[in-house]
Design a protein around this nucleic acid. Structure first.
Lengths: 185, 185
DNA sequence: CAGCGCATGTAAGATGTTACATGATTCA
DNA sequence: TGAATCATGTAACATCTTACATGCGCTG
């Protein structure tokens, strides 16, 4: 048996936290605009889960009345909220680490330094961008602090700290690699 | 189509880097004792891959002569080394983030602060232990530096930096949570 | 009217985990 | 002799990604 899917709980979490009816599309957008660097979901997961949760009466569907556009809104039921709370109380399962970049550096002796430098720069710049985005969000959150929970702010800080640490490591490693490249030429 | 498996390349990488015949069991042990915090493999993956790679002539098997114990040793072929080098030159694929702890904190408003504190403490102590282990390895590596490549040392530094950043964030967050717990009582 | 963003959904297929099965050897 | 470690392997099953399919509404 494979590890139990946490997608249903993520959906329940978004619906429970925001306390308003959302469509599958909305849910995806919320995830992408908040915890995307820590958790991602695809439509291929979300839509089937929405049906499953409805069948289990953990969420309920209602057709959107406002517009003519096809749009199904879901809200969490008391049963769903209970289920969510129970899951939140459970210890997070240890994740399986998957850091291909580190692996490629680990095998660096079988590769060429310029390639490694390229990979590192590329990831460094992405981590840097992520860090700046989180910093930006933090700034916004501090201004209008009634629309953010302190918990959300904590995750933003995690984003800033972890991104910066990565950038710091990348810079240090790039320095080392550049020195190695020079000395072996 | 799901994301392409990188297990074959990990096996090729270990065999290529160490340049000596290893068994499936050995390979697992090497991974567990080096990059385990960045990459993990299970026997359920390794053994089938070993057969596959043999069929493709990227590695070759030889029965262990030394002992009577059932033990199959594999070594990389030139073709395998070429394949490995090509993979190492490719840009690492972006990983799908999966940080259940951050998610649970993000949904913190639907949970109880003591639970969150428990989860955080538990992960903080594991990150701290990982950080200390990497620090230890770094110390050893510096002493007998001919048995470690500079690339391996770089990954050890990554372990130290990332673990410390996590611990730093956890401590900051625990402080916040404890203050919140007091003020809402 | 073309293109983009909104919006929902399905199918195929590889991936990876867990559990199980088996047996040898070493050490207390 | 029993437990732990060494050692290889298979089966079942859920998970997840990618690709595809479809169609509406708004904007330039």
């Amino acid at each position: 048996m494979a590890r139990k899917s946490r997608t249903p709980m993520v959906v329940l979490g978004i619906l429970g936290m925001l306390r308003k009816p959302l469509s599958g599309y909305d849910i995806k957008r919320v995830i992408d605009n908040s915890v995307s660097h820590f958790w991602a979901e695809s439509f291929g997961q979300i839509y089937p889960v929405l049906k499953l949760l409805t069948a289990e009466k953990l969420i309920q569907a209602q057709a959107a009345q406002e517009t003519s556009r096809k749009r199904i809104l879901y809200s969490i039921t008391p049963k769903g909220a209970k289920q969510l709370k129970a899951w939140l109380a459970e210890a997070p399962e240890p994740e399986r680490p998957r850091e291909e970049l580190i692996l490629k550096i680990f095998f660096g002796s079988e590769s060429d330094i310029p390639h490694l430098i390229g990979h590192l720069q590329e990831r460094r710049s992405r981590a840097n961008a992520a860090g700046e985005q989180y910093t930006q969000w933090l700034k916004i959150a501090r201004k209008q602090n009634e629309s953010y929970t302190p918990f959300q702010i904590m995750t933003l800080r995690a984003g800033v700290i972890m991104s910066r640490a990565f950038v710091q490591w990348a810079d240090q490693s790039l320095l080392t690699l550049n020195q190695m490249r020079k000395s072996t030429r």
